[in-house]
Simulated assay, not measured.
Amino acid sequence: MTRSTRLQTLIRLLRHRQEPMPGPALAEALGVSLRTLYQEIAVLRAVGIEVVNEPGRGYLLPPEVVLPPPALQEPQVVGQGGGASSQPTVDALVFYTNPLSRGGIVHWMLEELGINYRTVTLEYGSAMKSPEYLAINPLGKVPAIRHGDTVVTEAAAICAYLADAFPEAGLAPPLAARGDYYRWLFLAAGPLESAIALNDLGVTPTPEQAMRLGSGDYWALVETLAGAVADKPFIAGDAFSAADVYVGSHIGWGMHFGTLPRRPEFEAYWDGLRERPAQRRCEAFIERVLAGGT
């Protein structure tokens, strides 16, 4: 059974029910696991079909939903820049986020790609802990993406995946030149994030403890990162890449929130990135959210 057929079948099973249908019974009727059922319900919600979950009872479909739903046939999948996708919505890219989260990194990456995508905004709390979203990310955190059948979580992994999934955007160096690209992308995702978190919490590991930590010493990382961006517009070669999206985000946010020092190397590097049109669109979006807009 194709995904489109399965989604149509799921809608038909729920459409005329007066009482909720329990998840296990619904999964059995579709011949899928509960996890797959939750993922498919998340897909329906992502394309605008609001399946209602009554906790402890099951799922219902609002009576106003008609078959076949237009969103499953000729979609208009829109990103911040607008435009329509040529793919079926069920196979398009869905971006799960909260504007005030690390999802901003992925938002910037998507805008740099210039592709069509659908954004699903989740509030902190019950929305991120719902069974449907936990089937996307069992940690109940954002960001995450679903691209066809592929689900990717963790901002650095998403950036790396998107750069490879859309090579025409040129956001990953050729394979033979990816040493610095992988190095700095994942140094920022691992040691740098850990060291910043420990330092922000006021935890100063002893030299012996630092040897046991993957993050090592906070100030050694600051010096290393400053040296990596000193007098360079991009961190991994002569061209902008996904590594700049990820590292640049951490440097920009770090200086703004005081978790990284305002060193001249960081300020010069970030000043060169923040004026990119894609980054400016993302900043404007967050400003609208903070001002109470949409």
Rank of each mutant, 00 (worst) to 15 (best):
Met1Phe: 03
Thr5Ser: 00
Arg12Phe: 14
Gln18Ile: 03
Glu19Val: 06
Met21Ala: 09
Met21Lys: 04
Pro22Phe: 05
Gly23Ala: 15
Ala25Gln: 15
Ala25Gly: 11
Ala27Arg: 00
Arg35His: 03
Tyr38Ser: 04
Gln39Leu: 12
Glu40Gln: 09
Ala42Pro: 01
Ile49Val: 15
Glu50Gly: 05
Val51Glu: 00
Asn53Pro: 02
Glu54Arg: 14
Leu61Cys: 06
Leu61Ser: 06
Pro62Gln: 02
Pro63Glu: 08
Val66Ser: 15
Val66Thr: 15
Leu67Ala: 07
Ala71Cys: 12
Leu72Tyr: 01
Glu74Asp: 14
Gln76Ser: 04
Gln76Met: 10
Gly83Ser: 00
Gln87Leu: 14
Gln87Glu: 14
Val90Tyr: 15
Ala92Ser: 15
Ala92Pro: 06
Leu93Val: 07
Tyr96Asn: 05
Arg102Asn: 14
Gly104Thr: 01
Ile115Cys: 05
Val120Glu: 05
Thr121Ser: 11
Thr121Ile: 15
Met128Trp: 06
Met128Ser: 03
Met128Lys: 13
Glu132Leu: 07
Tyr133Asn: 11
Tyr133Ala: 04
Tyr133Trp: 13
Leu134Trp: 05
Ala135Pro: 02
Asn137Met: 10
Leu139Cys: 06
Gly140Lys: 08
Lys141Val: 12
Lys141Gly: 03
Lys141Ile: 07
Pro143Trp: 12
Ala144Cys: 12
Arg146Met: 11
Asp149Ser: 15
Asp149Glu: 15
Ile158Gly: 06
Cys159Val: 14
Tyr161Cys: 12
Ala163Cys: 12
Asp164Thr: 11
Glu168Pro: 04
Glu168Trp: 02
Ala172Phe: 08
Tyr181Arg: 10
Tyr182Lys: 03
Tyr182Thr: 04
Arg183Gly: 02
Pro191His: 03
Leu192Pro: 06
Leu192Asp: 05
Glu193Lys: 13
Leu198Phe: 07
Thr206Glu: 02
Gly214Asp: 05
Gly216Cys: 01
Glu223Gln: 08
Gly227Arg: 09
Asp231Val: 05
Phe234Asp: 02
Ala236Glu: 06
Gly237Ile: 01
Asp238Asn: 01
Ala239Met: 07
Ala239His: 10
Phe240Lys: 09
Ala242Thr: 04
Val245Trp: 09
Ser249Asn: 02
Met255Asn: 04
His256Trp: 14
Thr259Gly: 04
Pro264Tyr: 11
Phe266Asn: 00
Ala268Val: 11
Leu273Pro: 01
Arg274His: 11
Arg274Lys: 15
Glu275Tyr: 00
Arg276Cys: 00
Pro277Asn: 05
Arg280His: 00
Ala291Arg: 13
Ala291Val: 09
Gly293Arg: 09
Thr294Pro: 03
